[in-house]
């Protein structure tokens, strides 16, 4: 029996590998020209600082399985139930894939920081996003970015998350720990730089995360200011001047930064809504896909035969994404072997 997996990120790749191992044939659809999804834009992973490229490579190697057919540069456009329990997935390159189950692993998209105009992204030179910083890490370009190494860097948490002004009520979960991880990486590259994190709440939910936070303060001398950025301006030297309230002191604070990093949040990928809509799978108001039940029905959707894996249902870290993918593989197997089909 064949399964169509939409999305060649970590979730889709992991699920493909597991399902192929169970003897199913898998069509894995990826809209970019290589697999890995957003992971391709990362340098190192938290909490163990593993190389992201290494993990992508590992995922890629596992796909070298006779049961897996990879369709790159192909975007899934529409899912239709051609016969009961038979799904047809139309691709942008006119191919139609058929499967007894469809796994949505469409992931997330990074928030477009231009939408927070007052933060100056795209207007001021020295404002970059956390995704761009990862790229600078990979290219070892941070120290020479503006001719000389920055002396003070600020990380702005919650850009595009927990903000009703851009209609994103949700927490993206990962930005806090990513900021801590990136701050540590910056410290390793630039021992002299002063580093600040501007946060609303520190949400260090995962194993080892809180420890990393402690270490950041203790070993890496990273400073934390509790206050949300209201606006930023650019001074005559091209530096960024930020305005926050240091809420724990109770006073407004101004600070000049040589580099401001916006911790961009996660939003539902554009494809999720379109594909889910074509098979009447409901979404949360923020655009992520709604599972059949938040406790016992994860990986399942309101439509039997349509499954989900990874961050297309909510912001998720890599550990949870891979776990979720394996769980999805098991749910699909259960469905195809019929134990759940007529329940």
């Amino acid at each position: 029996m064949n399964i169509v997996i939409i999305g060649g990120g970590p979730a889709g790749s992991e699920a493909a590998y597991r399902l192929a191992g169970e003897g199913y044939t898998v069509d894995l659809v990826e809209k970019e020209n290589s697999i890995g999804g957003n992971l391709n834009n990362w340098h190192q992973l938290f909490p163990d600082r593993k190389s992201a490229a290494g993990l992508v490579k590992e995922l890629q190697q596992r796909l070298n399985h006779p049961g897996i057919t990879l369709h790159i540069d192909a975007e899934a456009r529409e899912i239709a139930e051609s016969a009961p329990g038979k799904f047809a997935v139309k691709l942008s390159n006119k191919t139609v894939l058929h499967g007894s189950a469809v796994l949505l692993a469409t992931g997330y998209k990074v928030f477009d920081a231009k939408r927070k105009e007052e933060y100056g992204y795209g207007i001021y030179k020295r404002v970059i996003t956390s995704a761009e910083l990862e790229n600078l890490f990979t290219n070892r370009a941070l120290a020479t970015l503006y001719g000389e190494a920055p002396k003070r860097i600020g990380f702005i948490h919650c850009v595009g998350s927990r903000d009703e002004k851009i209609c994103n009520y949700h927490c993206s979960k990962l930005c806090c720990v990513t900021a801590v991880k990136q701050a540590i990486e910056v410290r390793e590259m630039l021992p002299e730089v002063e580093i600040f994190c501007f946060y609303m709440d520190m949400r260090m939910f995962g194993p080892g995360y809180e420890e990393m936070y402690r270490e950041a303060q203790e070993r890496y001398d990273i400073k934390f200011i509790r206050g949300r950025l209201s606006e930023a301006a650019e001074n005559i030297h091209g530096q960024v001047v930020v305005k926050v309230e240091d809420t724990l002191v109770g006073k407004p604070l101004r600070m000049t930064l040589d580099l401001m990093v916006l911790m961009v949040g996660m939003e539902a990928a554009d494809g999720s809504g379109k594909l889910a809509g074509s098979v009447q799978v409901p979404l949360y108001p923020n655009g992520f896909i709604r599972p059949a039940d938040p406790h016992t029905g994860t990986n399942l959707t309101a439509r039997p035969g349509i499954f989900t894996a990874g961050s297309c249902t909510s912001p998720m870290n890599l550990t949870d994404t891979l776990t979720d993918a394996r769980s999805a593989a098991w749910q699909i197997k259960k469905w195809l072997t019929g134990s759940d089909k007529h329940a």
Binding site: E117, E118, G120, I123, Y124, E231, A233, E234
Partner: peptide
């Protein structure tokens, strides 16, 4: 206007 730097720029 201080929240719309594109305009002042």
């Amino acid at each position: 206007g201080q929240l719309t730097p594109t305009v002042t720029r």
